[in-house]
Nucleic acid binder design. Structure first.
Lengths: 190, 190
DNA sequence: CTATTGACTAAATTAGTTTTTTGGTCAAAT
DNA sequence: ATTTGACCAAAAAACTAATTTAGTCAATAG
């Protein structure tokens, strides 16, 4: 049974990116961790960035599985939006690789990392967009610009979960759900 | 009529900060621009940062005057929130000093500048908070956590006006007003 | 006397140079 | 047909020297 070199490489790179970040991970290190010659990496991946892309791509798939598993058909659309988003942001704050990448972007501003995080954000927005389109088709919510709506939903969520904590004590899931309800359901108008 | 040295210094520093940013402005330069010996600056201000603070403090006052002038009593609360916020973000994108500081934060990450922009943001949130409290007292909108609500309102606005433009064509004032209405007034629920 | 100044200094920043590291290649080995 | 690691150019880091700058304070001016 020959070891699957490709998988070893991806596993090693994932581990190293999670531990040290993108920039501080060297291809020599990945090769050593994967018990593989450095050249072998380049038979599977064009370069470091493509290896990174593959890993992020898997990560996004994982996230979507997570979000989907949070959705329950018997609940309302609004409730499910909250549940899916909350699961996604929990994922972001609990997965070692995501934590490291967010940190690397903040501290060093590594370009490849910024691009990749932007990409992840866009994927999440696309995911939300699809859910919103389905809800509109089913007549569950009124028509709207789905691109802007999904964009704004995510931004609101990030504001509540991450930005808020810069100056205040973190909000509980229940508090966030309550706030979302005010904005999504009733609006501020009496 | 002795020239008011303090005013000359503040004027010179404002000009230089607007033109070159915080870091690239030297105290020698400010002194020369203000036709004043460098030591004189330090009889009025403890250090460079305190001089900066005074200028930002004036800026915030200007912004509040701007926002207030956008408010019209005969319009609805929601409409006025939109008008005031729009005026504030217009201010940010049109005032030379603000433009320069936002740019300096993005490009160089100057700490003193980041702190000052955070301070400006907090002042805006405080301003919104007062308006919301008044509206609640008048019974115009339902009760809510005013701290979170004002925070979220600003974040939504910045998302629509600034973040959106990273990947899309800018939204017009009318479009933004429409989106705000959906979220503040009606919610997404049918 | 008080208010103002600019030469002065310690500390920080920048510029220039050398050394080390790193992504990627490819001839040799398996 | 795969895999490898010595090798290379280019990028990054480390180091140093030279310059700049915030802030001080003894001398000066009014």
């Amino acid at each position: 049974m020959a070891p699957d070199r490709r998988k070893m490489i991806v596993a090693a790179a994932t581990k190293s990116f999670s531990l040290f970040g993108y920039k501080a991970t060297t291809m020599d290190q990945v090769a050593k961790l994967a018990n593989v010659g450095k050249g072998t990496i380049y038979t599977f991946f064009k370069n470091k960035e493509e290896l990174f892309e593959e890993i992020i791509s898997s990560l996004v798939k994982e996230m979507i599985v997570e979000a989907d598993s949070a959705i329950q058909l018997e609940l309302s659309f609004t409730e499910n939006v909250h549940r899916a988003l909350y699961r996604l942001l929990e994922f972001r704050s609990q997965h070692q690789l995501m934590i490291k990448l967010v940190q690397e972007e903040a501290e060093m501003g590594t370009l490849a990392v910024s691009e990749m995080l932007q990409h992840v954000e866009n994927e999440i927005i696309d995911y939300l967009k699809q859910k919103i389109e389905t809800a509109i088709a089913k007549g569950a919510i009124p028509e709207a610009n789905t691109e802007i709506t999904s964009f704004l939903l995510l931004k609101m969520y990030i504001a509540l979960v991450s930005d808020w904590e810069r100056n205040h004590a973190p909000l509980s899931s229940e508090q966030i759900a309550e706030i979302m309800k005010v904005f999504l359901l009733k609006g501020l108008q009496k």
